[in-house]
Design a binder for these strands. Structure first.
Length: 299
DNA sequence: GGCCATCCAGTAACAACCGA
DNA sequence: TCGGTTGTTACTGGATGGCC
């Protein structure tokens, strides 16, 4: 690494600061990005105008970043965008998802999309490994479950918020791309069962205790998967929360920049959230949420 | 319009894992 | 060791689309 002395007086401080961009800083940036609505880009808008809009947006984001300058935020944001675009272009491989042995078969958005192209069902044999109906129990050992990560569960909640209960296919395709619709449905089943039993007595902590994308706990207002939620099929996380997150604690889902905008639509995952990894990890991308270009979305 | 095939979501049962 | 939690699988029934 270049020494601060060699870097020159002007640049060294900045570079040092950037080198110290911590996980907490990333988290703060994520929240800031989520909190500040991205300017709506009008069709046919001048590029200069769009750039100015983005500058203003970045200023607003930077204003929320205590201890970081505008240039630092811009720099970090730029890195973020470049990393994500690099991954999208295939220049950076998506890292294997932790604990997911099968990620090799569905780690990428392309493969995930392929898996979900009407072949995701057991009839279509999406599990090329062959544990569908075709293979008997005796033939194939029962597949060990891959625990859902907190991140996946949050994405699941976001998908639930966006598509509502029942559209597991869309949730799988656009949010939890590392899971099949069947898996999402199964997870949802457990989730709602858990929610239902929450009121009685909570015994052991569970990933299903996370009922919003901020990781907070919300009194159960969800109906069981077997019934509708308060009479509304889409009355789910976020929109229907009894205790919506305060303005200064934006949910990831709130960050929904307009589709097609070059920066946000690339730097964020399909869930509309910047994907963050701890410093030192390269790409700001986790296979679970990336990439799902809008053009590949169906339905 | 009726029939058929396919897709898809929901559900129950099962097995593995884990904590008290 | 036992019971709770979780993920997977098998099965069922409704919805949808194509064909006659």
């Amino acid at each position: 690494m270049a020494s601060p002395a060699a870097a020159g007086a002007a640049g060294e401080g900045r570079q040092e600061e950037e080198a110290r961009w911590s996980w907490e800083d990333d988290k703060a940036l994520e929240n800031a990005i989520a909190a500040v609505p991205y300017p709506v880009e009008e069709e046919g808008a001048d590029e200069a105008v769009a750039a100015a809009e983005e500058d203003r947006w970045l200023e607003a984001v930077a204003a929320r970043m205590l201890g970081k300058t505008l240039s630092q935020v811009k720099q970090q944001y730029k890195c973020l965008v470049e990393d994500v675009m690099a991954v999208e272009a295939g220049r950076i491989p998506t890292p294997p998802y932790p604990g997911d042995d099968s990620s090799s078969s569905r780690a990428t958005g392309e493969q995930a999309a392929k898996n979900h192209h009407g072949l995701s069902d057991r009839r279509g044999g999406f599990e090329s490994g062959g544990q569908g109906k075709g293979s008997s129990k005796s033939d194939q050992e029962r597949r060990k479950g891959i625990p859902w990560t907190e991140e996946e569960h949050r994405l699941f909640l976001l998908g639930l918020d966006k598509f509502g209960k029942g559209d597991w296919r869309s949730i799988s395709r656009n949010f939890v791309v590392s899971r099949t619709p069947t898996q999402v449905a199964s997870h949802a089943q457990k989730y709602f069962i858990r929610l239902n039993s929450m009121n009685r007595d909570r015994r052991r902590s569970s990933i299903h205790d996370i009922t919003n994308v901020n990781g907070g706990d919300v009194p159960s207002s969800q109906g069981p998967i077997t019934g509708q939620v308060n009479g509304s099929p889409t009355a789910t996380i976020g929109s229907s929360m009894k205790h919506p997150p305060p303005p200064n604690m934006p949910t990831i889902g709130m960050y929904r920049p307009p589709m097609g905008h070059p920066v946000p639509s690339h730097m964020v995952s399909a869930v509309g959230t910047p994907v963050m990894l701890p410093p030192g990890h390269s790409p700001y991308v986790m296979p679970v949420a990336y990439p799902v270009p809008s053009s590949t979305m169906h339905q």
